[in-house]
Simulated scan of single mutants.
Amino acid sequence: MDFRRIEVIFLIVFFSLDIFLFLSFRNSQQLVSSTSTNTSTVTEMRKRNISFGSLDTKNGNAYYLGSQPDDSLAQNVQKLRNQKVEYENVNHTLVSTLNNPITVTTANRTEVMNKFVKKESNILFGKDYKYAPQLSSSSQMIYVPTGSLGEVYDKTAQLVFSVSEGEVVGYTQTYVKKLIVLHEKQAIKSEKEVVTNLYANSEIPNNSKISYANLAYTKLLEANDSTIYIPVWFVTIRNKDSKVSTTKKVNAFTGNIIKSSTNGDNYSAQ
């Protein structure tokens, strides 16, 4: 595809994005932002037995990113060994069943699979992925792409291993070769602002622990065969009594709590 055509496509996509953002802004929630309010909120959270580490107060920057469908997996599938592979053209997804399942334990599975991922005859572009414990569970090990623009927590670019009875039996993989910056960088909400806002909106229950608070890109919308990503805070909260974890998502630009996934994903943290 020539550069001019790509440029036209992303102009159309970004116009769609502008409309979406305008409508979202009209219904946006206000973020609790004053220093004094945040400080008192943190104190109140600790009194209610909510555990968390030091909360970063720095407001960083992030982008609107875009990508287009990519068939790099299909073009390189012949490099894979010792596995039965199928490629789904519609979703650009590679599905693999390992000829020899890999035995893992709770203690060693990260180390074992990190080594497996780095070998190109095992996983295509494996060096571009990083293990994401926040998204993983006892039955799935999820790896996400990481690069200079940040990590991507989204099923459009993800490596998911299936674990059954102590064995990794196969995986599904999606891949984005290149992320394109659609707009100049913008300020984002700090970790402290996001966490205190979640509490103020009754999203963090008493007697719980914030086990993860990570910033990553996730899909906002699709338009003209292109995907637009925005930065989102993924905050995982673990109930100290039930031991059940839930992950809350917050738009890093606006501070709005994402009540339902923009892309249908339901992540289950460990």
Score class of each variant (00 low, 15 high):
residue 241 D to K: 11
residue 28 S to Q: 08
residue 175 Y to Q: 13
residue 193 E to G: 08
residue 243 K to V: 03
residue 229 Y to Q: 13
residue 136 S to P: 01
residue 30 Q to N: 03
residue 12 I to Y: 06
residue 139 S to N: 12
residue 87 Y to L: 06
residue 119 K to F: 04
residue 133 P to S: 07
residue 83 Q to G: 08
residue 151 E to M: 13
residue 15 F to Q: 14
residue 159 L to K: 08
residue 131 Y to E: 01
residue 168 V to E: 08
residue 152 V to L: 13
residue 17 L to V: 11
residue 30 Q to C: 02
residue 255 G to A: 11
residue 65 L to P: 00
residue 185 K to N: 03
residue 189 K to Y: 01
residue 204 I to Q: 03
residue 265 D to L: 02
residue 212 Y to G: 07
residue 99 N to Q: 11
residue 144 V to L: 08
residue 202 S to Q: 15
residue 199 Y to A: 04
residue 247 T to I: 12
residue 169 V to F: 08
residue 37 T to C: 00
residue 13 V to F: 09
residue 168 V to H: 08
residue 164 S to C: 00
residue 35 T to Q: 14
residue 64 Y to G: 01
residue 23 L to C: 04
residue 67 S to V: 00
residue 147 G to V: 01
residue 243 K to I: 01
residue 32 V to N: 09
residue 223 A to K: 06
residue 256 N to V: 04
residue 123 I to E: 04
residue 221 L to Q: 13
residue 142 I to V: 14
residue 16 S to T: 12
residue 135 L to D: 09
residue 214 N to V: 14
residue 142 I to Y: 09
residue 139 S to M: 05
residue 117 V to C: 10
residue 92 H to S: 11
residue 213 A to N: 12
residue 242 S to T: 15
residue 126 G to D: 01
residue 52 F to E: 07
residue 53 G to C: 05
residue 72 S to I: 00
residue 174 T to L: 06
residue 61 N to V: 03
residue 62 A to S: 15
residue 175 Y to L: 07
residue 196 T to H: 04
residue 128 D to V: 03
residue 9 I to T: 14
residue 29 Q to C: 04
residue 60 G to E: 12
residue 126 G to K: 00
residue 70 D to H: 07
residue 23 L to H: 12
residue 32 V to Q: 06
residue 116 F to D: 06
residue 169 V to H: 04
residue 74 A to Y: 12
residue 235 V to K: 02
residue 70 D to P: 02
residue 190 S to D: 10
residue 234 F to V: 02
residue 74 A to E: 14
residue 135 L to C: 05
residue 140 Q to Y: 14
residue 107 A to P: 01
residue 98 L to A: 06
residue 13 V to A: 15
residue 80 L to C: 05
residue 17 L to R: 02
residue 144 V to E: 10
residue 264 G to C: 07
residue 113 M to A: 05
residue 93 T to P: 13
residue 40 S to K: 15
residue 42 V to Q: 12
residue 266 N to C: 05
residue 61 N to Q: 11
residue 136 S to I: 10
residue 206 N to T: 15
residue 40 S to Q: 12
residue 61 N to S: 15
residue 244 V to Q: 13
residue 4 R to H: 04
residue 270 Q to S: 05
residue 171 Y to V: 10
residue 169 V to R: 09
residue 21 L to Y: 12
residue 7 E to P: 00
residue 270 Q to C: 00
residue 39 T to K: 15
residue 24 S to Y: 06
residue 67 S to E: 13
residue 187 A to Y: 03
residue 158 Q to A: 14
residue 246 T to M: 07
residue 215 L to C: 07
residue 85 V to A: 13
residue 241 D to R: 07
residue 102 I to M: 11
residue 66 G to Y: 05
residue 59 N to F: 01
residue 162 S to N: 11
residue 173 Q to T: 11
residue 15 F to G: 15
residue 28 S to L: 02
residue 110 T to I: 12
residue 37 T to K: 15
residue 65 L to E: 08
residue 210 I to K: 04
residue 202 S to W: 03
residue 162 S to M: 07
residue 191 E to L: 06
residue 13 V to I: 01
residue 150 G to W: 10
residue 165 E to I: 06
residue 86 E to F: 05
residue 235 V to F: 00
residue 115 K to R: 11
